[in-house]
Computed example of a mutant assay.
Amino acid sequence: MTRRRTASPNADNPRIRAERTLIGLEFGTAAAALGGGILLAVRPDGAFLHADPHVLRRTPFTDWRLPGLLLAAGCGGGYLATGILQLRRHRSARPLGVAAGLSLIGLEAWETAYVEFQPLEAVFAVVGAAVAVLALRVPTGRPALRLPTGTSPG
């Protein structure tokens, strides 16, 4: 018996592509936030990420430890949970996805106003907008999304 790669029958469905893009953005954002937050918490002087503690002067923080923990837990954990719920097509995935996207836009706006502007903040604001829009576009309440294995008997 040979196995060959075949395209998923839903591969051309725009809603399935949108859902996969949404899940990728959610898990990618979770990974970036968890990784960055942990690195900031481990080295609160910002050395791992070349983050100067001096930019925190207009914030309540004196070093990067608490902002790193908040980033890892809040953004990283939130996006991880949202991605898992979207993968399972849970009924609360849509409102959580919209909330996660809008929260990320708000976080980046706050950072720009109180810390300093960096181009990566604009990128993550766009990611937040994409997550919010895609979350509204993707239907929920259906059976869990089955990711293709890439092989089929035959």
Score class of each variant (00 low, 15 high):
Glu19Pro: 05
Glu19His: 11
Arg20Ala: 10
Thr21Trp: 13
Thr21Leu: 10
Leu22Ile: 06
Leu22Cys: 08
Ile23Gln: 15
Ile23Trp: 10
Glu26Leu: 15
Phe27Leu: 04
Gly28Tyr: 06
Gly28Ala: 07
Ala30Asp: 02
Ala30Gln: 01
Ala31Trp: 04
Ala31Val: 15
Ala33Lys: 06
Leu34Cys: 07
Gly35Asn: 01
Ile38Ser: 07
Leu39Asp: 11
Leu40Thr: 01
Leu40Cys: 11
Ala41Arg: 11
Val42Ser: 03
Val42Pro: 00
Val42Thr: 01
Arg43Gly: 05
Ala47His: 03
Ala47Glu: 08
Phe48Asp: 02
Phe48Ala: 06
Leu49His: 07
Ala51His: 01
Ala51Gln: 05
Ala51Met: 01
Asp52Met: 04
Asp52Glu: 13
Pro53Ala: 13
Pro53Phe: 06
Val55Ser: 09
Val55Pro: 00
Val55Ile: 15
Val55His: 01
Arg57Val: 15
Thr59Arg: 09
Phe61Arg: 07
Thr62His: 11
Asp63Phe: 10
Asp63His: 11
Asp63Leu: 05
Asp63Glu: 06
Arg65Ala: 03
Arg65Asn: 05
Leu66Pro: 01
Leu66Asp: 02
Leu66Thr: 12
Gly68Arg: 09
Leu69Glu: 14
Leu70Cys: 07
Ala72Met: 05
Gly74Tyr: 11
Cys75Trp: 08
Gly76Tyr: 01
Tyr79Pro: 00
Leu80Asp: 00
Gly83Val: 04
Gly83Trp: 10
Leu85Ser: 14
Leu85Pro: 07
Arg89Cys: 07
Arg89Gly: 06
His90Thr: 08
Ala93Thr: 06
Arg94Asp: 04
Pro95Glu: 12
Gly101Ser: 02
Ser103His: 02
Leu104Phe: 09
Leu104Pro: 00
Glu108Val: 14
Ala109Val: 15
Glu111Lys: 03
Glu111Gln: 07
Thr112Leu: 12
Thr112Cys: 05
Ala113Arg: 13
Tyr114Trp: 13
Val115Phe: 01
Glu116Gln: 12
Phe117Gly: 00
Gln118Glu: 14
Gln118Trp: 06
Gln118Leu: 13
Pro119Leu: 12
Pro119Arg: 07
Leu120Tyr: 10
Glu121Ala: 13
Glu121Phe: 05
Glu121Leu: 15
Phe124Cys: 04
Phe124Glu: 04
Val126Thr: 14
Gly128Ile: 09
Ala129Thr: 05
Ala130Met: 11
Ala130His: 06
Ala132Arg: 12
Val133Asp: 03
Leu134Met: 00
Ala135Arg: 03
Leu136Tyr: 03
Val138His: 11
Pro139Gln: 07
Pro139Ser: 09
Thr140Glu: 13
Thr140Met: 14
Thr140Ile: 15
Thr140His: 14
Arg142Ala: 15
Arg142Ser: 15
Arg142Asn: 13
Pro143Gly: 15
Pro143Lys: 14
Thr149Met: 11
Ser152Asp: 08
Ser152Ile: 09
Ser152Gln: 04
Pro153Thr: 08
